[in-house]
Nucleic acid binder design. Structure first.
Length: 85
DNA sequence: GCGCTGACTGTCA
DNA sequence: ATGACAGCCAGCG
């Protein structure tokens, strides 16, 4: 059975290139609309290189964070993929 | 098992 | 529009 963490990872892994999802959207897709913080926590502590977590942003259009270089790098990645920030 | 932390979100002032 | 407050969840010590 998939724990919330597994679900979140799967959802993020499904995000297509040039597309971005908010933490809230991921939380909903994972099955918990209120678990946006948990999603962020999962990314923050358990970052997976196979998962484009840099495509996960805040609901206000903010980048949130990136444990791989910072928000600036995250923004560069998103813009480089064609995402509008 | 309890308490704190954190890349969040939404509402009020 | 900006700032502050409260609410929610999962992971870790």
């Amino acid at each position: 059975m998939e724990s919330f963490t597994e679900k979140v990872r799967a959802v993020v892994a499904v995000i297509p290139k040039g597309q971005v999802m908010t933490y809230k959207a991921v939380a909903i897709a994972a099955g918990n609309p209120k678990a946006a913080r948990a999603v962020a926590n999962i990314m923050a502590k358990n970052y997976d290189q196979h998962i484009p977590c840099h495509r996960v942003i805040r609901s206000d259009g903010g980048l949130g964070g990136y444990n791989r270089g910072g928000e600036n790098v995250k923004k560069q990645l998103l813009t480089g993929e064609g995402a509008v920030v």
